[in-house]
């Protein structure tokens, strides 16, 4: 199993802190609530273990916004919210009451755009810092269980053996909205990412 060195892990977490921090700032600006962000976690998994790893974080039915990104570093970026969190977020952004556990058309539209903003803020910041151009697919919202989301990721990643999973949990203060920002990269991208992160880390000295 591949391992990241302590230096690589440290540089990667710092990069993620900046990227996820930018996403959190955007969410705070959108909602008017302070966003509490966990320290990003970086883990490397064999592809067949990714599902198990993600299911430890989120269970059951969730709302997820998925964007595929391509370029020198490519992979999948996800915003994951539980259903009630997604409904509350819609309420915060539209001032329209949401039925408990209800993801209506208006909520779908709001959550998709929020996902678009957060994922772009995060990945775009990585692109800026690492000096690589990243292209994004249009965001896709799914309301399904975690297993189904993972299946679609695994289909897209057929033929790869390892995946880097980075994630950070967040919570909107004074609300019940919690969620995860998550990025899944293939090892081919990981190699390029590590080199870019090392260059970036050198440039900071």
């Amino acid at each position: 199993m591949m391992e990241l060195t302590a230096l690589q892990q440290d540089a990667l977490v710092e990069l993620l802190n900046i990227g996820f921090g930018r996403a959190a700032a955007s969410l705070s600006q959108l909602t008017g609530h302070r966003v509490l962000l966990d320290v990003p976690q970086v883990t490397l998994h064999a592809v067949d273990e990714v599902g198990e790893a993600l299911e430890r974080l989120v269970h059951g039915h969730v709302a997820s916004v998925h964007q595929i990104f391509t370029g020198p570093v490519a992979g999948d970026a996800l915003l994951i919210l539980d259903e009630s969190g997604a409904a509350i977020l819609k309420e915060l952004l539209t001032n329209e009451p949401a039925l408990p556990l209800s993801i209506d058309a208006s909520a779908r539209e709001v959550i998709t755009e929020v996902g678009n903003i957060l994922l772009n803020a995060c990945l775009g910041t990585f692109g800026n810092l690492l000096k690589v151009q990243v292209s994004f697919s249009v965001p896709h919202l799914s309301i399904e269980n975690v297993g189904a989301i993972l299946e679609s990721l695994m289909v897209a990643h057929q033929g790869i053996r390892y995946a880097l999973v980075v994630h950070a949990g967040f919570r909107l203060r004074d609300t019940q909205v919690t969620g995860y920002l998550m990025i899944v990269l293939s090892v081919a991208s990981l190699d390029r990412l590590i080199h870019a992160v090392e260059d970036w880390e050198q440039a900071q000295r």
Partner: peptide, 26 residues
């Protein structure tokens, strides 16, 4: 755009855009 990349801003401006704002806009 939600795309905060400097390179995207450069592409837009060199393509003739008069300005570039990132979402969420105030």
């Amino acid at each position: 755009s939600a795309d905060v990349q400097d390179s995207s801003r450069e592409l837009a401006v060199s393509g003739g855009a008069s300005g570039f704002l990132t979402k969420p806009v105030d």
